[in-house]
Design a protein around this nucleic acid. Sequence first.
DNA 1: ATGGTCGTACAACGA
Length: 276
Amino acid sequence: MTAPAAVATPLRVATWNINSVRLRAPLLRQVMDELNPDVLCLQETKTPDEHFPHEAAEALGFTHRIITGMKGYNGVAVLSRLPLTRMPDWQDWCGKGDCRHLGVSVDLPGGPMEVHNFYVPAGGDVPDRGANPKFAHKLDFLAEVTAWTAARGPARRSVLVGDLNIAPMEHDVWSHKQMLGVVSHTPVEVEAMGRWIAAGGWYDALRHFVPADQKLYTWWSYRAKDWRAADRGRRLDHVWVSQDLAGGLRRHAVLKDARDWPQTSDHVPVLMEIVV
DNA sequence: ATGGTCGTACAACGA
């Protein structure tokens, strides 16, 4: 007689571009109340490691934390209820030392699972490599990450989340036609993202739940008078899973109401529940 | 067609 299979408990992974972790640490309580993630990946923490609000994270049950931050810009963090190990093959993308990626291993009963937390360069305003060094940096970053991904081979027991600053599909933006020349939705960026996702054999977990013909956004500009009425959003934040985890996808949530919180980020938290 | 708002850190830059 065989032993009964272990009961699979879904893991809850969330991602949020928090746009300053020091300013918005109090909002993490609301993220926990609404989404209750086991692993929370943050981008744009904008904080040197010595000033990270560890106490606030600890108080929410995130006893394991791996962070990489710098003064004023960028910065990513992985907060977890489960033990984490930083992955050894850290890359300094484009040689800039700008704290845009953490790869961690999460200690789970069924074996370790990789979590990659990315903050891809926004790319500035002009979608021209020659005229705009920030756009060149974005494309170079994507090319480097894609080459690294291809060299590692297809992802297994892995999740990739973050602010990837690209809205690849027609209904990831409010107007495909009007956005074709706007950085985040240009064909050259969308193609670069396509090469990245193919290189890792990644699976777009949010679009597993929301059909391609339905609008799906995770970001709304601060500049709109009434962001909800205008609803000119973009899907800049992503959750990708390795093919072997696609069958374990159980539920997603895009916490749109967070966009109305007092002094909130222009991105909203996104949750994925996965049996691993 | 343009300007619109944030955060960091104190002028200007990045988004």
